[in-house]
């Protein structure tokens, strides 16, 4: 049994589990065209539908849409701060998995509501001992209450 600062990993998991399924208050994000374009530019995007308004206006979307991983923009201030509990005596935190479900396209002028919650806490045995895993979900809806996305993040602490 491994003990860090007087706590076993099972005790750490029990502490973190107290935060399970507690939804955060919604955080509202106003999506500006410039934010989408900057995201595209700074990630080396070449698909013009994500940054060239004149080009995008002529096509099926009628204007630019956000690149698929722009959904990560809505995690700030929520993940890890308000969803995960890293206040346990394990020195290393790594982000291991991202899982994203896509709904409606995100467009300039959208008003996105983001709600987070911790949805799973489990222990797995690693090469160097037990590791604590935390899963956090952030669910996104737009101003029409349409589902825009679910972003699931898994972190490991050891």
């Amino acid at each position: 049994m491994t003990i860090h600062d007087g706590m076993t990993i099972e005790e750490m998991a029990e502490k973190v589990r107290k935060s399970l399924y507690i939804k955060t208050e919604p955080v509202i994000f106003e999506v500006e065209k410039g934010a989408i374009q900057r995201y595209a530019q700074y990630t080396g995007e070449t698909e013009r539908l994500f940054f060239d308004e004149d080009h995008a206006r002529k096509g099926r979307f009628g204007g630019i849409i956000a690149p698929p991983t722009f959904l990560s923009w809505f995690l700030k201030g929520i993940v890890p701060d308000r969803v995960f509990d890293y206040d346990v005596p394990l020195p290393t935190v790594l982000h291991t998995d991202d899982i994203v479900e896509h709904g409606d396209y995100i467009r300039p002028g959208d008003r996105i509501s983001a709600v987070g919650e911790l949805t799973d806490v489990f222990i797995r045995e690693g090469r160097n001992g037990p590791m604590l895993f935390e899963t956090g979900d952030v669910t996104l809806h737009n101003q029409n209450d349409a589902f825009v996305g679910l972003v699931r993040t898994i972190s490991v602490l050891f």
């Binding site: 070449t46 698909e47 994500f50 096509g59 979307f61 698929p68 291991t96 994203v100 479900e101």
Partner: peptide
């Protein structure tokens, strides 16, 4: 995702879900 949209642009295919293990 850029590798995928370079092959199948967003006006030809819609991304429903993606995941990654780092």
């Amino acid at each position: 995702c850029q590798a995928v949209t370079a092959w199948l642009p967003p006006d030809h295919a819609r991304i429903l879900r993606y995941e990654a293990r780092h």
